[in-house]
Design a protein around this nucleic acid. Structure first.
Lengths: 111, 111
DNA sequence: GCACTATTTCGACAAATATAGAATTAAGTG
DNA sequence: CACTTAATTCTATATTTGTCGAAATAGTGC
């Protein structure tokens, strides 16, 4: 029985940490099939246990998906969820301001 | 010397709390000149000190602006910052996925 | 089964966060 | 100046979060 606001807040909170935001950036830049945890670890240069904790936070929030491939676990971004969250954030934050503002949404601007 | 990722993370973190997200929703729906803290307090039904704490968090993150008007303090959303944050989030999260995905940005879709 | 690799889970601890009553500051009014 | 209203800051406390070494788990190959 988690409301829309609560769910969005949980997801934004999960993104609200430099390491986790960096992880996500890596994931979206990596292969579609997902990026192994070990590769993230070597690139970000943090202890494996710390990384695993952050990955679990992102996964619990539903922002990333995980699939095993042999001994490695491949993480990848859930674009559907990310899209929905961004959409909600924009409409939530700027629905009032947009009325007085003829400019297009931020992600559509070409300037 | 706060980097782009760190700043975005701080702002997302500030939004990552149900009460603060609710506050922001109220602000964007309220008058352009801003909404008095007292009005937020009565609508959200939380102690004034708790509300003040959350407002300070939002203000510190640069998401809201405040102006005094007599004895009341009016808070309003900073749309420029919110727009920039949403834009960053979208491009940050979906730059990789967008290449394989012909769909427009979430805030531009009309479906 | 044993060794090896990849990753998570456990356990402990410090630091940050959320909450809220009480005291304080700021501004207006008689 | 005293009084009232609006909101913050102070103080305290409980909870959550972040970190990371050590131990455990999952899978692969000999």
């Amino acid at each position: 029985m988690t409301g829309r606001v609560e769910q969005a807040a949980e997801r934004l909170k999960a993104l609200g940490h430099p390491v986790r935001l960096s992880i996500l950036r890596r994931l979206v830049q990596g292969p579609e099939a997902g990026t192994p945890a070990g590769e993230l670890q070597s690139r970000l240069d943090i202890p494996a246990s710390t990384l695993s904790h952050h990955l679990a936070t992102l996964a619990d929030a539903g922002l990333v998906l995980v699939a095993r491939e042999g001994t490695t676990l491949r993480y990848r971004a859930d674009y559907g969820v990310l899209r929905a969250l961004t959409e909600y954030l924009w409409q939530d934050c700027c629905a009032g301001g947009a009325a007085d503002d003829p400019q297009p949404s931020p992600c559509c601007r070409r300037d």
